[in-house]
Structures are given as C-alpha cells and as structure tokens.
Design a protein around this nucleic acid. Structure first.
Lengths: 260, 260
DNA sequence: CGCGTCCGTCCCACATCATGGAACGATAGT
DNA sequence: ACTATCGTTCCATGATGTGGGACGGACGCG
C-alpha cells in the first residue's frame, strides 16, 4: 500500500477504526459485526477487534444480548461537552467584546478543571495592551484567581473539595494560602455574586470575576475583567462588577435556551 | 505490557488515539502538540502521528497558522447525526406504539440512504404476528416501498436524483419499474401527504407511508403501517392514513422543538 | 427432529508497521 | 544574539497488528 503523497504519519489502525466508528454512528440502529464488515470491506477479524476496542473505550456500546453495536456513552458525552463549550464561547464573545469596549481592559473566559482554571477565551482592548498575563489554554490555581473563586462559590457541596486541596500554592506575596480565609471569602462571593482578587495571582494586577451558571445553577464557566491595580478605583470596581454580572446573566440565559 | 484480563482484542493505537481525541475535545480551546503530550504522557512522536491521523480523518482540525488542534468537522457531523437519529427514535416511539395499538398492524420507521430505505425501528402488534418482512437495519429499494415514496415526494430537486437511478429493480410482479409512472405517483403523494403501496415490495402485503419532515420541510424519515392486503379495506386505509399523518405531524413538531 | 447456513469468536504464523529516542531547524521570548 | 521550546523528520527495532482459516453455537428451513 504505497499511497504516494505527503500524507505520511498516518496510522492505519486509527484511520480504519474511525471508519468503523463513523459507520456505526451513521446508522440509526445498532449494527452487527457482519453487517459492518460487509459495508466497509475490511477483514472480519480486523473489524471485530476495532469494535471490541471502541467498546472498551465506551465510544460504542456492545449490546451483549443481541450482539449489536451502537453509539456509546463516551462519544455522546464528548459531543455534549464539545457542543457546550463551543456554544459557550460563541455566546460569550459578544458580551465580552462589549465589556472590553466599555472598560478598555482585558476580559477572560475560563472553566474549572480539577483545582485549576483554564482560560478558554480572552479579549484585549486595542489600546492599553497591558501585556497578557494569561494565554488561552493556560492554567492558574483556582484559589488565586477571581475566576476560580467565582466558580467555587457556586459549586455544590460535592464538588467543593476543590478547596480541600492539600496545599494552596503561594503565587504572589498576597495569595491566600489559608483554607479558612479562602472559605470565608468564597462565602462573601456567593452573597455578592462576584469575586475580587487583588495582586493574589500577579503583582499589580487585580481581577473581578463572575460565574456563568447553567439552568441548574452549576457554574459551567466564569468571566473576569483584569486590570492594573491602580487603574481600578473602588467605585469603578463596583460599576465593572455590576456590568460583569449583567453580562454573565445574559450568557446564562442564552445558554439555557441553546441547551433546550 | 501484560495486562492480564479478558480484555484481549484491544488494538492499542486505536485506544490511545481515542485518548487524544478525548483530550482535545474536552478542552474548550485549541491545543498544541506539546500540551497534549504533557497531559497524556505519551511519546511526542506518537501523539504527533495520532494528531495527524485524526486530522486527516477530519475528526479534529489542524489550525495551520497557530499549529493548534481543535474538534473537527467530521466529529461534529457525526454527533449531530447521531443526536438527530436518537432523538427521532425516542420521539417517534410513543406515536408508533399508539398506531400499533389502534390498528393492530406493524409500524415501521425508516430513513433514506442513497436510493434505499433503511429500517431504524419497528413495532409489531402482540397478536396477529404477520411475520416481519423487514428487520431493523434491513434495506429495501425506495421505489418499491411506501416509505421511500413518501420521502421522495418531499425531497428537494437536488436530492431527487434518487429517482434517476439507472434501473428500478423489479421486486414483485407489481413493482413499478417505469420512472415516469413513479414520478406521477410521487406527485400524487406530495398532494395527498401519504403514500400507498400494494404488493409492490412483497406479495399480499400493502403499506401506507407518511414522511416525517424537519423544520425546513426536509424528509428526515418516514413511518409506515404495513398489513396484509385483504385486511385493509379502502375506508380503513383512509382512516389509517389520516392517523399516520397526524402522528407524523406530531413527531415533526417535537423534533423541531428538540433541535432548537 | 436433524439438516445446513450464517455469524461471532478464537488461533497462529508472518512481516508489516507502529514505535519512540534522538537529532534537526524554526520560532519566539529575553 | 542567545537560549529555550516546539514541531518535524529520521531510522533501526521488534512488538504487535494482521487476516486467513477453523471452531462451535444459534437459528431457520425443510
């Protein structure tokens, strides 16, 4: 099989297994081994193994009783997660842009992963580039960011173990490392609806964070505005926090509508 | 790597590539090769190849400019198709059950694939088992079934080439093999809203088929009631056809709501 | 009731093909 | 300009995926 072309680096088992997955998912019904073999024109043993492997990975499900294969839990989960995240970014962007235009500061969008926040989007003002302390895909500890605090505040008890981390790393001199203090702050955040962090993640930079809740009240993401400390006077902070809350609320609403 | 256990028949490249896919899809942002490597703890070269392969298969997309990988077109297509089909079955079932209870005949659900109809669900009455001439997953030519005619009638011009098939296979003595006659029948179906087929697919068996349309009017599926010819007198046929149309309409409505 | 067919599973010898360490070139950050 | 990092390429190695074939159980037909 010498397929001349730049398409080197192709791993055939993977490629063929994806064909199998594709076939299974495109049928509206559970399929049998022989049926799949007949359609894809691959050796029976090979397809059998792929089916087994895909089943083990939960990308497809093996109905033992009828010996048929259908789309699996993991595949559907993945699709749902992806759809959710994609929807989130699309819906959040115009709101983020508006905030950037209003305050001329950087606006971040992040989700929680383990005990860290992961930035999934970020918009910066054209002027006043304060240099991005965060990049898309970068991770920061939850406890040292307003993003993290905002989400933690609305986590159900079960998931709140984020705060029970063994050690709270000291990022800057101001980072909270005491679990009790953090817990009290988070309680405040829950009441106020927004979180503030001043120089706890990076010297001279402060952030205001608000959670983005889904229909059930679960914090699927958070949005923050980050600016140099001296530029954010107390009253401006209040104004920004309110604007963030309004924007987050709007995103939540759109999110709920899209999920229906 | 001797993982003792019944989990033989596992193809590692496939398994590992699925891990990569899983990782990429679960991040809300496009990821880099190194990032993925660091997370999955697999050799860089290996992950690189999987990323290439998955990209070639369009399951993930390679943003050449930024050298980042994100979820691909094919994956999203698959997810959408699967979601649609699953939703269809779930929504259609109660309606189908009601029809079975009312008429005590077999009710089928099918989609169009090329120029054939594929049965994706089927409900039979408890008594009067007339023997199933069709099975879930089985295919029949579109032109010899009421299912096929019902869908063809609402196909947009572009897709209607189904009828331009080189030859219309003769299934029974009554099967229509003349394209012009078929076209005229299909025109009638479009006006009436339901299709009838008598012994054209199997001797002594007749079917009444109705299309299930999505929000744009595209026939995503069709539903039919099939019964022995002699049992279906003309007036009963009318009654059944109306019931089928009502049920299909209800399914269409629910489908539209779910897709929003 | 016994026949034949079809389908899923298992086996095994072979060589292909995935593997991953290492080196290279490009790019960006300082 | 220098260095760290990242993506890409190369290559020797043998592990592992491969697929033809056989086995046995389940239907379905006569």
């Amino acid at each position: 099989m010498s397929k001349a072309g730049g398409d080197d680096y192709i791993v055939q088992p993977v490629m063929k297994a994806l064909q199998v997955l594709d076939y299974v998912a495109r049928q509206g019904h559970d399929v049998s081994l022989t049926e799949t073999v007949h359609e894809l024109k691959l050796p029976k043993t090979t397809v059998f193994r792929y089916l087994q492997t895909l089943s083990a990975a939960q990308f497809i499900e093996h109905d033992l009783k009828r010996d048929r294969y259908g789309v699996g839990r993991r595949f559907r989960d993945l699709a749902r997660v992806d759809q959710g995240l994609q929807g989130l970014r699309d819906i959040a962007q115009p709101e983020m842009q508006r905030l950037v235009d209003t305050f001329h500061e950087t606006v971040n969008l992040a989700v929680l992963s383990q005990s860290e926040v992961v930035y999934i989007d970020m918009l910066e003002p054209v002027v006043r580039a304060v240099k991005a302390q965060a990049r898309i895909g970068r991770r920061h500890p939850a406890h040292s960011t307003s993003l993290g605090k905002a989400m933690m505040a609305f986590l159900p008890e079960a998931d709140a173990l984020v705060m029970r981390e063994r050690a709270l790393p000291q990022i800057t001199i101001k980072t909270l490392t005491d679990a009790d203090k953090l817990r009290r702050q988070v309680d405040d955040v829950r009441r106020r609806g927004y979180a503030i962090e001043v120089g706890e993640n990076e010297d001279g930079v402060m952030c205001i964070g608000v959670p983005i809740l889904d229909g059930t009240g679960y914090p699927v993401a958070a949005m923050s505005l980050s600016a140099p400390e001296r530029r954010m006077k107390p009253e401006l902070t209040i104004v920004a926090a309110d604007a963030l809350k309004v924007a987050a609320k709007r995103i939540s609403t759109h999110l709920g509508a899209a999920a229906a």
